[in-house]
Nucleic acid binder design. Structure first.
Length: 288
DNA sequence: TCTGGGGTCCTAGGACCC
DNA sequence: TCTGGGGTCCTAGGACCC
């Protein structure tokens, strides 16, 4: 059975959940998505604190949740999986290898199917093997940042800092998979205009100008292309649309289009770090 | 998983400049 | 004119997560 998405309601409830977390004494809350957050706290009895969190969320929203306790963000995040459903689990330097050592690298937060396969090609299949790997050995395969970061993940190490500064989106995008492939240039252009309008609505609520565009095109079987372009800073929707239509000239004619996507990148507010210095916590902590 | 949508970050290669 | 090295910017593509 399929139910329609009610994102407005989810957002409301999400805000209630986060509100309940923030009310806890001493809590620093870093939202990870609609249904997930890090809570920073120093306490002698983390399990009791976790139960209190669950009770608070339940009282306010009648929703259950699981809590992972950890001494790093990665360990806490992974621990949450063991807490499900409705439970609490603690994962620290003391039991990390005991619990995770024999598991596949893909069980780590930040390592997916592709990377775990490449790791296996290097003879690294388990978390314990990854943990024992010299970070420098992974640079050749994964590059100077990702290589060492994967080794760190294997050990469960990494940031311990909960950052509660509000999320600031780098950009906004919309994409649509069409029920029927588009072929006529006119209907492709019309679809793009609709996408651009939606994206610009989202951008307008942020009040920041646009600095870059990406056009995503999925052709008939499943070939996806993306065209990206920096543009001179502008807050003018007409200007953005014109640039978008110009990008669209790169769509191959006479080729059925199954999906069209459009993304606008905005300037970041003053005081926002231009690039995040620490290693990626995981691509894409979604917005609250 | 024969394929939804909205995000983020990293890497490689080419262009350009000094 | 050719050669070389190093830095920065841009674009395309890949990977991951919720």
């Amino acid at each position: 059975m399929l139910l329609p998405v009610d994102s407005e309601h989810y957002l409301e409830v999400s805000a209630e959940v986060m509100g309940a977390l923030r009310e806890q004494p001493g809590a620093t809350v870093q939202v990870l998505g609609w249904d997930e957050a890090f809570v920073g706290i120093a306490t002698g009895d983390p399990e009791a604190y976790a139960r209190a969190l669950q009770a608070a969320v339940m009282a306010r929203t009648r929703l259950n949740c699981s809590v992972g306790i950890g001494d790093t963000l990665v360990r806490a995040k992974v621990a949450t999986g063991f807490g499900k459903p409705r439970g609490v689990f603690r994962l620290t330097a003391d039991n990390w290898l005991e619990v995770m050592g024999d598991r596949r690298t893909a069980d780590l937060w930040g390592i997916g199917a592709k990377v775990s396969k490449r790791l296996a090609g290097l003879g690294i299949s388990t978390v314990a093997q990854l943990a024992a790997t010299d970070p420098a050995e992974l640079v050749g395969e994964f590059g100077p940042r990702m290589g060492p970061w994967y080794a760190e993940l294997g050990r469960g190490e990494g940031s311990r800092v909960i950052d509660d500064t509000p999320w600031v989106a780098r950009g906004h995008s919309r994409e649509t998979t069409f029920q029927r492939d588009l072929v006529e240039p006119a209907e492709i252009e019309e679809a793009l205009r609709v996408l651009v309008a939606h994206v610009l609505e989202d951008v307008a609520t942020e009040g920041r100008p646009v600095v870059g565009l990406t056009l995503k095109v999925r052709y008939a079987p499943f070939l996806t292309k993306m065209f990206t372009r920096k543009i001179p800073v502008t807050a003018d929707p007409t200007e953005v649309l014109a640039r978008a239509l110009d990008l669209a000239t790169r769509i191959e004619p006479d080729r059925p289009v199954r999906l069209l996507g459009f993304r606008a990148e905005m300037t970041m507010p003053e005081g926002t770090p231009a690039t995040s210095t620490p290693p990626p916590e995981a691509g894409g902590d979604g917005p609250p």
